[in-house]
Design a protein around this nucleic acid. Structure first.
Ligand SMILES: [Mn+2]
Ligand SMILES: [Mn+2]
Ligand SMILES: [Zn+2]
Ligand SMILES: [Zn+2]
Lengths: 139, 139
DNA sequence: TTTATAAATGCAACAATGTTGCAAAAATAT
DNA sequence: ATATTTTTGCAACATTGTTGCATTTATAAA
């Protein structure tokens, strides 16, 4: 994971700092699971929430992570698996939010939509949230 | 509108207070538009944000209003037009969020979904958010 | 390898929002 | 009119988002 993290930082021309390395490793480890600031904070050795905040913004801006909208009111991010770029995130997949454990994960597949919007409305992005119980919690 | 508000309070057996009447009237006037606490606060004459908070919770609990999840990070509520009940909201319709003016509205129609969830996952609710530019902002 | 430069960090500071406890006030039931 | 039950308003606290600025650090240049 460490190599992958360094690789990514180099690829995106971001300076190699302890915070960035660690946060990136946590996202790589998380895979399709979305992480909140507080998730990350408790997993980090040294934690300054402002620096973390800016790190997340930087990663988001660069298309390394995307916000996983889950309707919980908690801001969560997950690794971009496809190819995202600045302000043009391709995270066009549904998210599942478990009400029991609070976990949010990125699901496979594109969002289908046959929603009719009123005249004059222009749709630029879509978010599909499924809420319920995850496999860990349903047993 | 005043009569309608009083009617609803009676129907749900909620005590007729100034805050409840006014908030309800604002929702009735808003129609399909979702309102945030701060929206409401600036529209109210007398505003105690805690009382407003509890009023919204009460209305939500009773199925008078539902949260309009729009991914903006701002909690917004809109009138339940169908028949919602405690903890069983039927707000099974998409929401449109305008990035330009921040407005969120409830769209017509049920949410379609052909999303495949992994084994063991149980879906209880769905949210569909369309983001873009509303008719007021697209001109 | 040292030094210069550009960027990131850490802290203070502030705002907004969510949330509970509790005494006082108000709405309804008796 | 009075008793009972709810609601309100305030204090208080927590979490999160956000910016400015001086200091530190990473990288580029010499
Ligand atoms: Mn995702
Ligand atoms: Mn709605
Ligand atoms: Zn779960
Ligand atoms: Zn708009």
């Amino acid at each position: 994971m460490q190599e992958k993290a360094l690789e990514l930082l180099k690829l995106y021309r971001l300076r190699n700092t302890a915070m960035r390395r660690q946060v990136l490793e946590l996202f790589l480890k998380a895979g399709h699971k979305a992480l909140s600031s507080s998730n990350l904070e408790s997993a980090l050795e040294k934690t300054d929430r402002i620096t973390l905040y800016r790190t997340l913004k930087t990663f988001e801006r660069n298309g390394i992570i995307h916000q996983a909208i889950d309707g919980s009111g908690v801001t969560k991010y997950a690794l971009c698996h496809g190819q995202c770029s600045e302000h043009d995130h391709m995270d066009d997949h549904p998210h599942f939010h478990c009400k029991d454990c609070g976990k949010t994960i990125c699901l496979e597949g594109k969002i289908q939509n046959n929603v009719k919007v009123p005249k004059g409305f222009i749709v630029q992005q879509k978010h599909f949230i499924l809420e319920g119980t995850c496999s860990d919690c349903s047993n």
